[in-house]
């Protein structure tokens, strides 16, 4: 899949590949310590951050799971 910054797509694919392997082979099996993809992520993230700034995408100050906070609890069905 493409990155929002065209120039970041190759870095993204490299990182995604690393992450998917780690996720299936380590994280889901409970061996979550030590993420081997940190360096690839940092490099890719710098590229995306620049693209987001250039395109004026309003991601700043958005709280994690933000709007979920004022929704009724989803655990009950």
């Amino acid at each position: 899949m493409n990155s929002v910054g065209e120039e970041c797509t190759d870095m993204k694919r490299e990182y995604d590949q690393c992450f998917n392997r780690w996720f299936a082979e380590k994280f889901l099996k409970g061996e979550g310590s030590g993420d081997p993809c940190t360096e690839l992520f940092q490099r890719y993230r710098l590229c995306v951050q620049k693209a987001i700034k250039d395109k004026d995408i309003p991601v700043d100050g958005v709280e994690f799971m933000g709007p979920n906070k004022d929704k009724p609890d989803g655990d009950g069905s």
Partner: peptide, 25 residues
């Protein structure tokens, strides 16, 4: 209809949950 997909943030919490933020266009 999905043009782009990026990971903006990722963290494994001390209680071993994986938090991820993605940006989609």
């Amino acid at each position: 209809h999905v043009l782009s997909e990026d990971v903006l943030y990722r963290e494994v919490t001390p209680d071993n949950k994986l938090l991820t933020r993605k940006l989609l266009t």
